[in-house]
Design a binder for these strands. Sequence first.
DNA 1: CTAAAACCTGACGTCGACGTCAGAGGCAAG
DNA 2: CTTGCCTCTGACGTCGACGTCAGGTTTTAG
Lengths: 132, 132
Amino acid sequence: MRIGELAARTGVSVRALRYYEEQALLAPERSASGQRHYREDAVDQVVLIRQLYAAGLSSKTIAGLMPCVVDGDATPELLRRLAAERDRVDARIAELLSARERLDSVIDGATSNLLTGRRCRNRTAPEPNAGP
Amino acid sequence: MRIGELAARTGVSVRALRYYEEQALLAPERSASGQRHYREDAVDQVVLIRQLYAAGLSSKTIAGLMPCVVDGDATPELLRRLAAERDRVDARIAELLSARERLDSVIDGATSNLLTGRRCRNRTAPEPNAGP
DNA sequence: CTAAAACCTGACGTCGACGTCAGAGGCAAG
DNA sequence: CTTGCCTCTGACGTCGACGTCAGGTTTTAG
């Protein structure tokens, strides 16, 4: 398939696909006229790439991992890096969970303030202030 | 305290603290000569700010929330935004968990490849390739 | 054959959270 | 008074993952 179809099927922009190639994350064939032609499994690869981006990996890091994923080839070094990235993701998740708790407590505090009718300072006039 | 001490006590840079003020996340007093002076609770506020950043909120969003946090003042609108942000954090966490699973499966695949001795292609020569 | 749609290669723009540098005060100690 | 550290205000630089525009070629539909 050509780049437009791959974009449509994966939901990523054409520009992004070209960028991925630039970063050596994808290596489509080229027709005689220079147009990119992707195989079916490119769809899965793009999905994987997006997930790794979502995990916070950089394009450089992903580029280092793609040979492993694509060829099934792996070295102990690569495994170490994969594990390290997983740990980083775990840490990020923990961070987010902590932040979420904090957000919740802020919400709880604010909610109870509202419920107990405790309006601080300048809410003395009952006018519904629509905007500036 | 002055900005250097606050930086030391929170672990964020002096530049970042000035930036936070620029974004209306902090509002320190000023001495006659123009130097910033922070109260003790600024430490907690900075910690909160960092957590909200870690949750993926933008400085603009955080700026909208700080009055609520600081003054304990809350409007239904603010509560909606807080809830929306929490949902966003939840979505991000789910994304990360999914990405983590994917990473794990990649690691598993690669590991079993190594364990079963299945070395693909160019690993024919047993020379320990040290570098480029 | 022709017009529209899709594709190509540069190359510059963006956005957010700061880093960094320059030049100029301010503040406590000796 | 001077030394040395801290602080101030601009203002430009950075980095990553693209967006966007320009100007040209290729493919497809009618």
